[in-house]
Write a protein that binds this DNA or RNA. Structure first.
Lengths: 344, 344
DNA sequence: ACCTGTCACTGACACGTGTCACCTCCCCCG
DNA sequence: CGGGGGAGGTGACACGTGTCAGTGACAGGT
């Protein structure tokens, strides 16, 4: 019984996908020559007329090299794998990410974002390892265990870089010290004489990675000064903010750090509608320094977060790939400082 | 002169990257058997004890299959390539994108976002083709020419789907009819009796893809009613908005569609600061229905944009891959409708 | 006439995997 | 005793590429 052959690519476009052998045939040379010409191999001398013929043949056939075959032969790739995010991140992060990607490309790496939604940590690591990337830059959304790192390194990854809130064994850890954000905001509130400080904690899933450390940072700062911190769960909805504002007076807070500018704006509106005066009765501080925060009255005070340059991080990746022996670096990515406006 | 061997992966982790041959050796079986066991090939019968031995050997070595070798052998991959964005997109789009990715993964596709920043259209298409994806879903940020599509199809791509503002020959075109957004907003303004309508056009590069069609849509709607449209270039900065507001009265506009809610909020603040009453003197309409727009006073009217479900699009991709012969679909992605609040 | 070089190119192998055709037991039936 | 057949497994090839060693032709020197 002859198995029906799987529908070949030939069928869709009239002819099969051209390989370097096809190019060689058309140009009347060997496949090796084709490879030398198309890769501009400097160690081998090929006459100009032949080069021309090969290039024309490749052009005519629409030849495109097969990346998989290439990296199989080479034994390594120049792919940098970045497990992609499922958290809706802000413009700050988005800009950083584009810079980073662009810089890596300049260094001749191929950047691949790979979605592994809904996989367990080790399972995800295995999926990434299948692609045999030369480096993995994890943004901390999928927690990477020591076990996972081991799998990746065994599969040939020269560098594993975690860009999260905590360091993982065996990786270059680039810590985003979210705690500092909460600390800076709280210190500012303390300086203006506030003593009972609320900290908004978003209820949305997936944000815990950021909000937890920010709360901890606020706690640290408050503890040093003998002040009090009260966590305030909040959903990003008007009803939730109104409900919180309704019981505001019984909480007895004179200051609040609202996770970021968006939550801060939401809460501030509800406070004002409930007759709470900002900043006289309660000071409000956000984070991220969004333009929109400057449009409110009072203008929103915020924590401005300066992220490390994408180019800098790209160079670190490159360095880590080339010098596998070098000890894992571990440095801080963020620089946070208060921007005082009118809401505090 | 012996060429120094390139630093092997063996060096970094103590031993080389294990292959299925290593697993076979350790389990005392042939490589074919390993392949059958690890892929759960149903057509071949392998005894349970052997299966166990193979699995244990694989586990012990930390074996991970080599995706490149696999797809080289198979002649095709299940990779869906999505050229990644460099435009800072909003939460609306971000959510859609995650849904889409998740749905594709459910259908057993591997989603890869591939950054090709700064490449020309055809050059980019060639770079994508190297990966031999089974489908390409272009989000329209890199314009895909007919030439580019040809390259991709010749390289084996079964489906090319463009998700942009205009259709491209040979692709399944999913048009995001941004024009409708401008049309809906303008129609609303006309209904409330406005006759001279400003349309904010962001000066930021990369947004032209959206803003152009929106302006055109506004023009269409105005023309039908014999009303006037005035384009208003604006940078997303307070100074730019203040400058625009300063010469507002000489423009003589009684309504403005501000591209999206963020620009609308920015402009509305400047108008109010300049003593222009909203909506009495000038009505303002945004787009995207951001929560923050509801916090302003007056509350911002907006165009709510409902995007097609990610799952739906994933199914279209799957269908297009399986039935290459089917004619290219071309359908509309967006559904726009006005949400009237207090600013109009 | 013979060796030595250089130029321009080619033949053949390896990378890691999936799969098809074949092979060897061993059991069972006639 | 012969042979049919299934269970369990193996050998070998192909996928497309990069690269090393080698090959023939030709020129130039002795």
């Amino acid at each position: 019984m002859s198995q029906p052959t799987e529908q070949s690519p030939e069928r869709s476009s009239g002819r099969a996908v051209p390989t370097s052998a096809d190019v060689a045939r058309l140009a009347g040379v060997s496949r090796a020559t084709v490879s030398y010409v198309l890769n501009n191999t400097s160690a081998v001398r090929i006459s100009e007329p032949t080069r021309q013929r090969v290039r024309e043949a490749a052009e005519e056939l629409g030849y495109v090299p097969h990346a998989a075959a290439r990296s199989l032969r080479a034994g390594h790739s120049r792919m940098v794998l970045i497990p992609s995010s499922h958290v809706p991140v802000g413009p700050l992060y988005s800009r950083f990410f584009n810079d980073f990607q662009w810089a890596l490309r300049r260094l001749d790496y191929t950047v691949v974002q790979y979605g592994s939604v809904g996989l367990e940590a080790e399972e995800a690591a295995r999926a990434w390892a299948e692609l045999r990337p030369v480096a993995v830059v994890s943004l901390g959304e999928v927690e990477l265990t020591g076990q996972g790192v081991e799998i990746l390194k065994r599969s040939g990854a020269r560098a594993v870089i975690t860009l999260g809130t905590q360091r993982v064994e065996g990786t270059h850890a680039l810590v985003m010290d979210q705690g500092r954000v909460g600390e800076v905001a709280t210190e500012h509130l303390l300086e203006t004489g506030r003593r009972r400080i609320g900290v908004v904690v978003p209820e949305e899933p997936g944000l815990g990675m950021f909000s937890g450390p920010r709360l901890d940072g606020a706690r640290r700062a408050a503890e040093r000064a003998g002040a009090t911190v009260v966590p305030l769960p909040l959903r990003y909805e008007e009803e939730s903010a109104d409900a919180l504002a309704a019981r505001w007076r019984e909480l007895g807070l004179d200051g609040v750090f609202a996770y970021n500018d968006e939550y801060a704006m939401l809460l501030m509106r509800s406070l004002q509608d409930a007759g709470i005066s900002v900043p006289d009765e309660t000071a409000v501080v956000g984070a991220d320094d969004l333009l929109l925060g400057r449009l409110l009255r009072p203008r929103l005070s915020t924590v401005r977060i300066d992220m490390v340059l994408g180019r800098e991080l790209a160079e670190l990746v490159d360095h880590a790939v080339r010098e596998t022996d070098a000890p894992p670096v571990s440095r801080d990515l963020l620089d946070s400082r208060i921007v005082r406006r009118e809401s505090s």
